[in-house]
């Protein structure tokens, strides 16, 4: 995955180096601007078994800030925010690869360096008895849950470092 580009970032930002599950690395640029979750919408995507995006709906495109062409074929971790603990994604992958649904609160990183919170649900898509892909649907989280999870993730990240 390409490093984020300073020209895409709105306002002040900080720089972070993210290390992914497969050993790859990426520099991400992060601002403190939150984009509110759009009312009444669902953010929908589908990935292959490796977590590569194969379908995104318009709400996904709008919130991520990338074009659909940039997103399709990219790993889902293109949205990974450095404030998210590794443990959350490890739990997600462990759960869905075991064929079970996963649900959790996620802070996502936009192309412009800002962020948005979602309540994400991921399910394995089973066809003729085999898991062939994963569908993820995000909905609007309550403010209370966002604050609760922001505090929990800060604690987990301190423990991880």
């Amino acid at each position: 995955m390409q490093d984020m580009c300073p020209g895409d970032i709105a306002g002040n930002y900080t720089e972070h180096r993210l290390r992914y599950f497969d050993g790859s690395q990426r520099t991400v640029l992060v601002s403190e601007t939150e984009t509110p979750y759009p009312e009444g919408r669902l953010i929908v995507s589908r990935t292959d078994l490796e977590g590569v995006l194969t379908h995104v709906n318009q709400s996904f495109v709008d919130m991520a800030g990338y074009t659909e062409q940039e997103l399709i074929g990219a790993p889902h971790s293109i949205l990974r925010h450095p404030d998210m603990p590794k443990a959350a994604f490890a739990d997600l992958w462990q759960t869905v690869t075991a064929g079970k649904p996963w649900q959790g609160y996620v802070k996502n990183l936009r192309k412009d360096g800002g962020y948005y919170w979602v309540l994400a649900t991921v399910i394995p898509n089973v066809r003729e008895g085999r898991v062939v892909s994963y569908t993820s649907v995000r909905r609007k989280p309550s403010r209370g849950k966002v604050e609760e999870h922001a505090a929990l993730y800060r604690k987990l990240r301190r423990e991880e470092s």
Partner: peptide, 11 residues
């Protein structure tokens, strides 16, 4: 696809 979506929403 719609059924998968409905399944995620029922959780």
């Amino acid at each position: 696809f719609m059924i998968d979506l409905m399944d995620t929403l029922m959780i």
